[in-house]
Amino acid sequence: MNEFLALIVAKYNFWLYIILMMIGLYAMIAKNNLMKKLVGMNIFQTAIILFYVSIGYKHGATLPIIQGGHGTHDAVIHAADYINPLPHVLMLTAIVVSVATFGVAMALCVKIYQRYQTLEEDELRIRLSEK
């Protein structure tokens, strides 16, 4: 029993992120509205960002800003005292890319709506076959 509890404590955040990611994937596959597909894509991206950030965490470590690092710093810095900065950097850029892709995708949706007066996929298919 204790082993099972330890497993849950050690892995539950990864499970939650996978569930979140699958919600996003399902929305991207099954939803009919293009806007809802975009929201699904954003949920998917958020799950991956959370996954990376949680990989960077270390028990007993603080955030990656060196204490007293401004000015002369003589004390030895131990890597175990600070969490891993690399996933944070990668996700900072990933967030910016997600904003950029979301903006362009919304612009495309606006264009599609202007031409076909709908964002539902099945209606779009009918309108496309009419022409």
Binding site: V9, G56, A61
Partner: peptide
């Protein structure tokens, strides 16, 4: 495991 200081990423 979550928060493991010896994980490969860290």
């Amino acid at each position: 495991n979550w928060g493991d200081p010896a994980s490969p990423a860290s």
